[in-house]
Design a protein around this nucleic acid. Structure first.
Lengths: 216, 216, 216, 216
DNA sequence: AATGAATGAGATTTCATTCAT
DNA sequence: AATGAATGAAATCTCATTCAT
């Protein structure tokens, strides 16, 4: 069996096991077995547990970012682009729950040696969203009312977080765990909720309709 | 030294170590040492690593929820209540970064035996927010336009996720890791961004100003 | 069982196993078993295989050097001092064949991380011998004929090597291995052979009776 | 590439790696890579790590013994023969430091399966020297004073050991390790030191000028 | 109330070695 | 003549956990 194929199998297995168990709890034995190969072969091709995990994270993150990017038609109007990006995000995370779990749940531990890399990848996602928002704001501005960069960054972080949370909501595993009932939301629903939030927020902000605490 | 005091010391130490290293990587040796007690004593008081971790999560989650709840004056107007809740959330997470790291970063692993409990605690937080939103919506509705429960739940999830993300943004550790520059946002800023988002979104939804994809 | 006693047992076992198998071949399992303790305890007390080996080498080297040093009566005449030193050397190596094997056979591999330390310890032995020779030469000089330092160092190296070789000769294990027959030499014999060599060599050198190649 | 050439390349590589790392630490991967061949080929030609090591030791030992033997002109006078043998020994070990390291440092481990063979090869070297000394003694005896065989064997062992030690002294690697300073001795110097020692020792012994401990 | 001493079980990783081609 | 692919076995080391005091 050619090396490339084997490597992919191993990554697939590793993503699944890491998503299920977490980095430390996952054992190389289990990964190797699931990949249908022997442990030494896993080491031969992927060097160490750490590198294997890194490779998984990188692959999944790149796939997610690529999915979002390619869904965004550069010629479309601003709102359409944001909408498509969101739908692609929810579609991809729903289609690849293990990869998503890896990125969202497992890869955040500070103190692990790959934390830095993971943080950078998440930042990439935020950057993509920041671009989307900035263009949306620019094109959609009814009047000359540029949002400060800092505010846009905040919005992007908030949106990414909201999207992550909604994606998690849609994940049946977390449903069971939390004891929630009722069907999880569809991608359309999740994207819709978020789109409305973003659209309304952007609109208000751009038009100066801010909420401010009443003087006490 | 009385048992209560010792126990608190142990939990403090455990939260710090768990936050820094994660559940699996943290070692009971380190925790015991940091707590200034011997390992057998830790076991005598807290039974096992798992129970110790659970106790940490429970304590920190309850503290966070209590902080948010107590900041919400039941007699205040709807927007004020949401605003105060958000500020309390950001204030608390900023004041207790280890506890927050525990809840946000470490405690998400599916597959660990305490995952269930952790998910339930997060659900409590979502429930608090859901209540806030529901009441805000009810009171703030300019016209009779009840939002469906399902949509409110979605909003709550989105808001909690956005808040988490903004709280993470404000955490200097993740800043360094992601290579971001510029000062992290203050609690006021974070709360403001989120409040605007929520307020605008709620307002639009309640008034039927929804964004919908153009027919293609 | 108190820590000190256990530690000594472990070192004893380690010296035996390392001497028998060499550093790499020896297994911590075997050492722990021979020491009558569990492996984790060995690690708790001695940290790592490398440190364990270092500790063995240090202990044995110090014991050997101490044995030689304490046998040398500072008030005795020069030849007597050398003689006593040699006898002590052969007596000690014969009495502690494992320790000797460790120093002589196992601890020389360049490339191992402890090679440096071992080389330094051997140098100590050479230094002791150099002192002995230097004083012998000074006191025993029939006429004013100081040997150059460099020559003395050479002699010391040669003597130490010769002693090592004779000590190895006396070791029954190497006898079997080499297929030699006949009883191995006693300490007295070995010391005598070496003493004569050293004494004659020194005498000749000091009196200028050197061997030089005939002009060809 | 013909088999013979390849085999030599492999042995060259193996000697280098074994000398650098020791038998156990050396890896077949490294040897194969350095030899520029694939691992299965190494196994095809040399069967196993053990046989490979044996082959290396045999080759190097035979080369050393041959060098010494061929330097000894059977017709020359006794002292001249010893002198030439010694010079050849130091010249060869200096010219082939890896081979020498293999014989002197790596190949002494009792407990490895080739220990027996290695010991026999060293014994051959001792035998060569024993012959040299025996003939020297016979020819050089000023009076009828045959040295007992046992004493000659002792001398031979001592001389070989001394030579080994001096050769080691001359090896720059051990110099660095021991922290010694000053230029290492040349072959001439080493051979001279040893020749004087041997010559004087032999002379004294044959003439009955022995050192004996004073009655106490 | 508190601990020094001790361990069973399991983790990652390495390596000599062999097929199938 | 030569090799890419693959592995069984064993190494070092760690850790949560428990006695005996």
């Amino acid at each position: 069996m050619p090396r490339e194929v084997r490597t992919r199998q191993m990554l697939d297995a590793a993503v699944e096991v890491f998503a299920r168990c977490g980095y430390r709890t996952a054992s190389m034995d289990e990964i190797a077995e699931l990949a249908g190969a022997s442990k030494p072969l896993v080491y031969l091709y992927l060097n160490s547990k750490e590198e294997l995990f890194s490779a998984c994270v990188r692959r999944e993150a790149e796939a997610l970012i690529a999915a979002v990017r390619s869904a965004v038609d550069p010629g479309a109007p601003a709102d359409r682009r944001l909408w498509n990006g969101l739908r692609a995000f929810f579609a991809h995370t729903a289609a690849h729950p293990d990869g998503w779990a890896l990125l969202h749940c497992q890869a955040r531990t500070y103190g692990e040696p790959f934390a830095l890399e993971v943080a950078r990848l998440r930042q990439q996602l935020v950057d993509v969203v920041t671009d989307l928002i900035a263009r949306t704001a620019r094109e959609g501005a009814e009047q000359e009312c540029a949002l400060p960069e800092r505010e846009i960054a905040g919005l992007a972080h908030a949106l990414v977080g909201a999207a992550e949370s909604l994606a998690g909501w849609a994940d049946s595993r977390s449903c069971e765990a939390a004891g929630r009932t009722g069907a999880p939301p569809s991608e359309q629903e999740a994207a819709g909720t978020l789109m409305n939030l973003a659209w309304a927020g952007l609109g208000n902000l751009m038009n100066g309709r801010r909420w401010a605490p009443a003087r006490s």
